[in-house]
């Protein structure tokens, strides 16, 4: 990842579609790597052959039940986080915004924790992600109600702060009142975020939601460009900001809410990736969207592959690894920005 972007930084003027094509290719390569790496030795080609010809062999099962969902979810969740991060930074005109800034991630996490706590988690496979999606939906309804009453961007940020702290407090309460230490530990581990042990059912659950979310977010590109010069200028250029905020919140909720619902909270991807790629698209917020989506997918797949290659058991949680990579990276970025200023 880092070598790729470093060599790109040199050619600031790379045409947009060539950049998108390159990032798509790198995403595919990373997904392939993610398929190839795992705890069980797996001959990828044998497994693929068995799967395609319908033979229920062990390699085919490992591929379809373990590796494939993990790689696909890594790409989907990373894309959602990167895209939503870029969109939120564009809407709020602030490089410190991240996908969860309006409270969607923590509300989704709270929804999932509620399912954990109530003991429904074991009832059926999708109870947990559905709980997460329900949590995100609640947050969105609240934000929509505010937006509908003509609330501005500042009100949405403040509402996000309120939702974040409320959902955080409720999550802590669930931990506080956990029936036993194991339940608490399970919740804590889930909150750290992971792609392990997910199945294709999870993919089918979130894929349609994410696709709609991505479409909504990507449709905002021209308006986000217009917003570069402030809200008055954006409106004078013919953009309806209430409708724009509605699409962005709805899109972020669908993409990020469902991402958190299946993987738990994975930080830093949505914050760091847009930063990293912004210079490559001439700092244009509209063009950053798609590019950040692919960047997020690459980063998350890389982190998830790396943690499986590390000789640490039990496996590190993905949210921990992205934070471990992301935080020092953000520091170096701040240093660089200070030198440029």
């Amino acid at each position: 990842m880092s070598t790729v972007t470093m060599s790109l930084s040199a050619s600031d003027q790379m045409p947009y579609w060539r950049l998108v094509t390159l990032l798509t290719a790198v995403t595919l390569v990373m997904a392939g790597l993610s398929l190839a790496v795992g705890y069980a030795r797996l001959d990828l080609f044998t497994a693929l052959g068995d799967w395609i010809s319908g033979r229920q062999t062990l390699p085919a099962l490992v591929l379809v039940e373990l590796r494939l969902p993990r790689a696909i979810l890594g790409a989907l969740v990373g894309f959602s986080l990167g895209l939503a991060g870029a969109a939120m930074q564009g809407l709020l005109r602030n490089p410190l915004a991240e996908p969860g800034i309006v409270g969607i991630s923590s509300a989704a996490a709270f929804g999932a924790v509620t399912v954990f706590y109530s003991g429904f988690a074991g009832a059926f496979a999708l109870a947990l992600p559905l709980g997460g999606i329900a949590g995100a939906l609640l947050a969105v309804l609240l934000l929509f109600a505010l937006n509908g009453r003509g609330a501005g961007t500042m009100t949405l940020i403040l509402a996000g702060v309120a939702i974040n702290s409320f959902a955080g407090a409720m999550t802590s309460l669930a931990l506080n009142l956990a029936p036993n230490p194991y339940a608490a530990l399970e919740i804590v581990f889930w909150l750290m975020g992971s792609l392990a042990d997910r199945s294709l059912i999870h993919v089918w659950l979130v894929l349609p939601l994410m696709l709609v979310g991505w479409a909504l977010l990507l449709s905002c590109a021209p308006a986000l460009d217009g917003l570069t010069l402030g809200e008055d200028t954006a409106r004078s250029l013919g953009f309806d900001l209430t409708w724009l905020r509605l699409r962005l919140i709805g899109g972020a909720a669908l993409a990020v809410g469902s991402a958190v619902a299946v993987t738990g909270a994975i930080g830093f991807v949505g914050l760091v990736v847009p930063h990293l790629l912004r210079p490559l698209v001439g700092h244009r917020p509209g063009r950053l969207l798609l590019v950040s989506g692919f960047g997020g997918a690459i980063l998350l797949l890389a982190a998830d592959t790396m943690l499986r290659l590390m000789p640490i058991r039990p496996e590190l949680k993905l949210g921990v690894v992205t934070a471990l990579i992301g935080a020092p990276f953000l520091f170096s970025l701040i240093q660089r920005l200070r030198r440029e200023a």
Binding site: R93, N94, P222, D225, G226, T228, L229, G230, D232, T233, S236, L237, G238, F239, R278, G282, H283, R284, P285
Partner: peptide
């Protein structure tokens, strides 16, 4: 608009091109 704040460090050409959005 008054003041002329620009959040992102876009090139001048990209900024002027925004005028063509409508």
């Amino acid at each position: 608009a008054q003041g002329g704040s620009v959040q992102w460090q876009m090139r001048a050409e990209a900024v002027v091109a925004l005028g063509r959005l409508p």
